[in-house]
């Protein structure tokens, strides 16, 4: 981090549109921001909001790459803005809201609503046998390696990058996306969930599920949490096929 290095002036083009304003239409607007050491898009966008245009809409919550709120297209690719260092980008770059999700305004999209729909549709919770748990008793045992494996898939932050990066999802609005498939893989792995393979097949054994996936692998390559999506979708595909034999 040398002090003498001349700082670049970033030219950030942002796709802007306020759906609440009947006179507005989608257009690009370019802002110039002086770069600082360790600057992330979180810092840069806040700078724009504070000093250039206070109506600029975007979503950050944890600003630490943990919560999945800030996904947007950076140079056309979905990613978490808060952990994108401007140093890794050219002097000129473009930002656009995640496609497919309901637009709230500018870079702010309503991924939460989409994800809620998905969760409800796939019933992403433990299905057990309705019996009341006695919380005073020792917990049920689980193989340590299995717990780790489940956690690995549980790391998904529902950021929506995998959906925005998937051509299938673009063509088929009912496609559950890698996020949905990963969730099924996660619950299928979990011995606490008592759903049968047929139940899972019912959920994703179709063109809106695993057989709709065309292995474009955009999901795998943009997932900010590096989930093993390719491998898990493949696993589901095998499992679903086996179930029909």
């Amino acid at each position: 981090m040398s002090e003498s290095k001349k700082q670049r002036v970033l030219k950030i083009s942002i796709l802007r549109f306020d759906p609440h304003d009947p006179e507005d239409f989608p257009h690009m607007e370019t802002f110039e921001v002086e770069e600082a050491d360790g600057m992330t898009l979180f810092i840069a966008l806040n700078e724009i909001r504070e000093h250039h245009d206070n109506s600029l809409k975007f979503d950050f919550v944890c600003r630490a790459g943990i919560c999945g709120s800030c996904s947007m297209l950076v140079n056309g690719r979905p990613t978490l803005a808060c952990r994108t260092l401007t140093a890794k980008l050219d002097e000129k770059f473009t930002l656009a809201p995640l496609p497919l999700f309901e637009l709230i305004g500018d870079l702010s999209v309503y991924t939460g609503k989409w994800m809620r729909g998905l969760n409800e549709r796939l019933e992403t919770w433990i299905h057990d046998k309705e019996e009341e748990l006695n919380v005073d008793k020792l917990e049920e045992k689980m193989e340590p390696a299995l717990a780790d494996e489940i956690y690995e898939l549980d790391r998904c932050v529902e950021c929506g990058c995998c959906v925005a990066g998937c051509g299938t999802a673009k063509m088929n609005p009912y496609f559950v996306g890698a996020v949905g498939l990963n969730k099924i893989a996660r619950y299928q792995l979990d011995p606490r969930d008592k759903r049968s393979d047929d139940d899972y097949y019912e959920l994703v054994g179709n063109e809106d599920g695993v057989f709709g996936c065309m292995t474009l692998l955009g999901c795998e390559d943009v997932c900010p949490k590096d989930l093993p999506l390719q491998s898990k979708i493949a696993y589901l595909r095998r499992m679903m096929l086996k179930n029909t034999l």
């Binding site: 919770w125 433990i126 057990d128 748990l133 919380v135 005073d136 008793k137 020792l138 917990e139 049920e140 045992k141 689980m142 193989e143 340590p144 717990a147 780790d148 489940i150 956690y151 549980d154 979990d190 606490r192 969930d193």
Partner: peptide, 17 residues
């Protein structure tokens, strides 16, 4: 302890011994 056991039941993949 009750709360954590409840969460275990609800699906948290706690790291195990």
């Amino acid at each position: 302890p009750k709360a954590i056991r409840e969460l275990a039941h609800w699906g948290v993949p706690w790291s195990r011994v």
